[in-house]
Design a protein around this nucleic acid. Structure first.
Length: 432
DNA sequence: TCTGGGGTCCTAGGACCC
DNA sequence: TCTGGGGTCCTAGGACCC
């Protein structure tokens, strides 16, 4: 048996945590650059705000409906996520953290009869300890657990926990579950399937396996088996090292200025190097890409990328920046208004496995110790306190984040202050 | 004016080998 | 008249997830 715990409207719930006034009010959280809606509270969903909607298109609507709008605050969400995960693993040690707001639990060592009760208790505990509401789906496979989770979330009578514990429940659930919502079936496959009259998860379960294998690869077959109740996707414990790492951003303002964009690229490269060091990996390839704004169809368009094979796999910031800028120089063309740039590092090997060269080992060691010191200082004093000159100082390319909430739990200066005296007065009043 | 960012996995097909 | 059979490796592109 597996469970999946999914935080309800996670980013919106995080924003609400420290602003009780927002209870029962519509909230949306925007993507980087305040671009699109990426999270909505139930109230926001109810008034018809769509996922992925560009913010500028619905600005008047948001204002008229008194919707609280936030820029995304990943420092806050990451920290709250960690608290949720820690709470869950204090109860169930066998977990797989699947995303910032989802976690799978292996329940095979528990008695079937206790599962509902245990999960209801877990849900209450997470809410009490972190303030985040969650939904829990329990089923014999991960894919079915995802289905169960959806039911737990939608049918309020289940109190946030739905246990698919027999065949009848499985069939009823699958029959009412749209095929496009199945975990592993995306938009493209859904369209093909619907054309063949496969409308819900139950139809898919019964559908021709050969067709699925041919058109959806073994991944599709695996999904089908999982829906039939045959577990094919095991729980993955531990954090696996990334095979590629990408840092890419749209600029707050389009730019054609080579200097400004190269600073942005240097900064993305620096982020990649940091992420590499964090997982003790060294990259063999580095790729830099540039994009103009594809929505401005009247503007001249130019998209380009360049991959460079590093002479020696590396994770030190000066190296990564240097090669990123070489690649950048090769693709940059003047005269275009650039919207976005990014750096991807790939073919990542463990730092202990780098092929050392004959002569410059001493230098390598030196750079390595500089990086360790730099990371330590920056962790303590704030990102980029020590940086490479190429990263620049004015940060003209930076994101637009006009509605950023405080980092309540991860920055000293943003801690909430509570006026106890006033709270006591209010409490007394309410008791009378 | 304004439209996100970060990943994984699989396969077909080409190039090459004997 | 007739033109084999078996393999590996790499990459681009397409699908998916949050």
């Amino acid at each position: 048996m597996f469970a999946i715990v999914d935080c309800n409207n996670f980013y919106a719930s995080c924003e609400r945590l420290f602003k009780p006034k927002l209870r029962n009010k519509p909230i949306v959280v925007l993507s980087n650059n305040d671009g699109c809606v990426i999270a909505r509270s139930n109230e926001a969903k109810a008034i018809g705000i769509k996922m992925g909607e560009p913010a500028f298109k619905i600005e008047p609507f948001l204002a008229n409906n008194d919707v609280a709008v936030f820029s995304s605050n990943y420092a806050l969400y990451g920290d709250i996520s960690e608290r949720v995960m820690n709470t869950i693993s204090s109860v169930f040690p066998e977990i797989e953290v699947y995303s910032i707001d989802e976690v799978f639990i292996d329940l095979s060592s528990y008695s079937m009869f206790d599962l509902s009760k245990l999960c209801l208790e877990l849900r209450a505990k997470v809410f009490q300890w972190t303030g985040i509401p969650v939904s829990i789906g329990i089923a014999p496979t991960k894919t079915l657990a995802k289905v169960a989770n959806r039911i737990a979330k939608k049918e309020f009578s289940y109190n946030g926990v739905f246990f698919m514990d027999d065949e009848a429940k499985r069939i009823i659930a699958l029959k009412q579950f749209p095929v496009e919502d199945v975990w592993g079936i995306g938009r493209k496959y859904a369209i093909k399937l619907q054309q063949l009259n496969v409308k819900n998860a139950y139809d898919f379960c019964k559908f021709n396996e050969n067709w699925i294998r041919k058109n959806m690869t073994v991944m599709g077959v695996r999904t089908q088996k999982e829906l039939q109740g045959i577990s094919c996707i095991p729980l993955e414990k531990g954090i696996s090292a990334k095979k590629s790492i990408c840092t890419a951003r749209s600029f707050g303002k389009n730019s054609s200025n080579k200097n400004i964009i190269s600073q942005a690229v240097a900064n993305y490269a620096a982020r990649c190097a940091e992420k590499l060091r964090k997982q003790k990996g060294c990259a063999t390839y580095i790729c830099v890409f540039l994009e103009t704004n594809r929505f401005r169809t009247n503007d001249p368009q130019y998209n380009a990328y360049k991959v460079i094979h590093l002479p020696l796999a590396s994770n030190n910031t000066p190296d990564i920046i240097r090669f990123a800028l070489i690649a950048f120089d090769l693709i940059f063309k003047p005269g275009f208004l650039y919207k976005k740039a990014g750096v991807i590092v790939s073919e990542i090997i463990h730092e202990s496995q780098i092929q050392l060269s004959l002569f410059d080992n001493e230098k390598q060691e030196k750079v390595k110790s500089i990086m360790i010191t730099m990371d330590r200082v920056n962790n303590l004093m704030g990102r980029d306190k020590i940086r490479i000159a190429k990263q620049g100082f004015d940060r003209k390319w930076k994101l637009r984040q006009e509605k950023l909430s405080p980092c309540y739990t991860s920055r000293w200066s943003d801690l909430l202050t509570i006026n106890i005296g006033k709270q006591c007065e209010l409490l007394k009043k309410s008791l009378h």
